[in-house]
Design a protein around this nucleic acid. Structure first.
Lengths: 87, 87
DNA sequence: CGTGGTGGTGCACGAACGTGCACATTCACT
DNA sequence: AGTGAATGTGCACGTTCGTGCACCACCACG
């Protein structure tokens, strides 16, 4: 799943957690974060610390990958990549 | 590139930035973060806020992806996962 | 109905953040 | 040597984090 926002991250974490049938308390303990914080994270908290996020992802069985995104070489409009528009 | 630590993230950001021939000041301005913070991020700061990280990744042309990780039942060799193909 | 489990949230607290500035270092070029 | 750009880093400041606790609503179960 592509993570483009804090909300995306929250949803991914919640999804993974529920897929594994784990409660917030269990995951929070495994990741060594507070349940209070985990609840906020799943709600899409953008100010969460990256270190805690990494531990949490690990606790719910998710890995993170960074991939290059085409920067639209100058003069090229993104829309032209999909000539029929992007609805 | 797989991001398993704050250091990995820092390296990925720096790599992407340099690949595009951009300075810290330029990227910091584009991501609306301080150069001070970006310098720390590239050095592997684990306490960086996720929201700022997302803006920075965007500024250097990187996307983020979350993928499920097998819990690795003990005694399982990773290679066997690919030899017969898990799916 | 009462009980237990789960998740959301307001509060106060200490700790750490991100920022801006200033300065040092390193490097390329002249 | 001199110049300028790029980067690292110490400091002080105001802001915000993450935590722990308490309490709430919701839901399934008997």
């Amino acid at each position: 799943m592509v993570i483009a926002s804090a909300r995306d991250l929250g949803l991914a974490v919640r999804q993974a957690r529920q897929d594994r049938g784990r409660t917030q308390s269990e995951v929070a303990a495994a990741a060594r974060v507070s349940r209070r914080w985990l609840s906020d994270l799943e709600a899409g908290k953008p100010s969460a610390e990256f270190g805690l996020i990494l531990r949490t992802l690990d606790a719910v069985g998710l890995g993170l990958d960074a991939f290059p995104v085409e920067p639209a070489p100058e003069g090229l409009d993104l829309d032209t990549l999909f000539e029929d528009g992007r609805g």
